[in-house]
Design a protein around this nucleic acid. Structure first.
Lengths: 343, 343
DNA sequence: ATTGGCAGTCCTAAGGTTCGAGTGCCAACA
DNA sequence: TGTTGGCACTCGAACCTTAGGACTGCCAAT
């Protein structure tokens, strides 16, 4: 399809994207020959631009103004033209210094998302890692009142899950103690799906009059075992949307509204294939289904000790600095994988 | 100070605030006599308005345009004129239905903050409750690798605190087991400050070569015991800022930036005195120190089972519907107190 | 394939005018 | 003393016109 566009034509597309992203103004043939040394005249550039326009890689906001990249143009830029230079030493240093201090998983992720926002000047997103390959470490039952109980569930990967529970019959300490002991001895060390299976038949070892209460507790625990924090998302840097307000046709209201709905973003994340170590961009209208037709999302995957993968990335106006942002996302994802992999 | 302003004058202030909040346009004497039945002529209203202006309760954006409330005017309105009608039945129903389903504390608060945002169409804030009066329920040590450990700390109020820890010497299961047993037997049931005191001398019961490791673990636990989730804040409804964008002189960028800094908001919260059951407003420039000089904050306190108090509230442009928002904040705070009080 | 030239397009900024809402003030009035 | 109608005045919002300029598209020449 780009067969019609010469190499120089692609080079022209590159500088159009770069200049437009930098200046936010449509770029004309004259300013191209001024700012870049193509060794040809403006008229020649104009011919190339006409081809690019035929291919719908650039478009003119008004009949006689400079050209602006289309979504398709950004796509070609990202796929063929962007060079992801590694971060500067200072930036790498900042990552290490900032993430190095973390005290636990929550802290690591909270710092990561802030860091990413700062590095890219966009909205940053970090999904909680899936911990499906982890094993049961400990189960704790904490009676709060006669009929109220907290169940705490701990895995060897550091995930802690708590839940409140109202039971239908009064609890006695004997039962709680017995239950706790049995739960821990039969579940300890099991993988999560095995643990869930075991819980399904757990109630059988109890006398009929105790079963209802035990059943309630077991049901709650089963939920916890299967619950996956991967449906959680951290976000930072929403203020950056306001900074780049002019890049949105109307108000930024619909965008802010869309990204407040975490479910939306998680679905969007889940639709993006992640090649390990790679970084992916979804551009402009590709996100239209989510009310985010004027934004782009750059993501990468990171892996935690469990070997499973979660995503992180940034979201911003279609007119964003893809080179920088993709490099930053990639670097942070890699660093995070390294950090979590050793745990 | 308001001695110079007649009762009718205050009534005029009320309708100016109400009309301006509703229409976002400066309100003139003529439109007042049209929309409200004062039984006097526009000229008379003008005289009252002149007095209100002398008192700096209203101001004219331009020499010959309608009047707009000043911060001081909003203050008088809030203190003397606003009537907080109770929520509608439908709204009360929504609160009960929405919060009733919650499964644990995190869930309750997450739902609360979203509810409040929806009810007020502003940015909603909910501070985590202080749990200082709770007692130690259980301490769990989870070895992850030879030198890596997770400490989990559970209180009877349902708070769960986890932390990762690298220790300087390899751990053995014997030590962990002994430590776990001793910790639980000596801390169980203690109040938090007592527990911290006990931890300070805890290391003494161990042999010298074990002390360094024990000391590290104890130090981590002490931090956890003293850590207070009250420095955490939930937020929802930031999109509402974009919706009311015109109410801010420049961009909403500085506002978004300020509210991303949770520390700022917590400090702001902490400066607002809470009378139990009351609801308070900080208006416009009163928040200037926080980069929030064009916003108002409406808060109330709520109490959890511990008897201690945390805050919740909404933040929005100075030009906001104080009556509605204060009523909503009060209602949600009360409902939340009731809900958490029974736990 | 490239280039200079040139006509034509259309946006933007600046300046000027009108229009009207609203005020302040005053003299008259109850 | 408080209220009212009248009136001159102010000043922003909206609209129009004009001039300027940045570009393009096309063509004929190289």
């Amino acid at each position: 399809m780009t067969a019609l566009v010469s190499d120089r034509g692609l080079e022209v597309l590159r500088v159009i994207v770069q200049d437009y992203v930098a200046s936010r103004e449509p770029v004309g043939s004259k300013s191209i020959v001024e700012r870049h040394s193509f060794g040809v005249s403006a008229a020649t550039i104009r011919n190339d631009m006409a081809l690019l326009e035929d291919e719908e890689l650039i478009a003119a906001p008004h009949t006689s103004s400079g050209r602006v990249p289309t979504d398709k143009g950004y796509r070609v830029f990202v796929d063929q033209l962007a060079d992801l230079r590694p971060l500067t030493v200072a930036q790498r240093g900042a990552i290490e210094a900032f993430l190095g201090e973390s005290v636990d998983l929550d802290d690591v992720l909270a710092r990561t998302v802030r860091l990413l926002a700062q590095l890219t000047h966009q909205v940053a997103l970090v999904q909680y890692p899936s911990l499906s390959t982890s094993r049961v470490r400990h189960v704790e039952l904490v009676p709060l009142t006669e009929t109220r109980l907290m169940t705490v569930f701990i895995t060897d990967s550091g995930r802690v899950e708590q839940r409140l529970l109202d039971v239908s019959a009064p609890l006695d300490d004997m039962l709680i103690g017995e239950l706790r002991a049995k739960l821990n001895s039969s579940l300890g060390g099991l993988g999560l799906s095995d643990a869930a299976a075991k819980l399904a038949t757990f109630v059988e070892g109890f006398t009929p009059e105790r079963r209802p209460v035990v059943q309630q507790i077991v049901a709650s625990l089963t939920e916890q075992v299967l619950a996956n924090k991967q449906d959680r998302l951290l976000m930072a840097g929403t203020a950056n949307l306001a900074r780049t307000e002019e890049d949105f046709s109307g108000s930024i209201y619909p965008v802010l509204e869309a990204i407040e709905e975490q479910v939306t973003l998680l679905r969007l994340f889940s639709e993006m294939e992640i090649e390990p170590g790679g970084v992916l961009a979804r551009i402009g209208r590709e996100n239209a289904g989510y009310g985010l037709g004027e934004t782009s999302v750059v993501t990468s995957g990171y892996s935690s000790s469990g070997g499973s993968v979660a995503r992180l990335g940034v979201l911003g106006p279609t007119r964003m600095d893809y080179s920088n942002n993709m490099a930053a996302v990639r670097a942070v994802a890699r660093y995070l994988s390294r950090l979590l992999g050793t745990e």
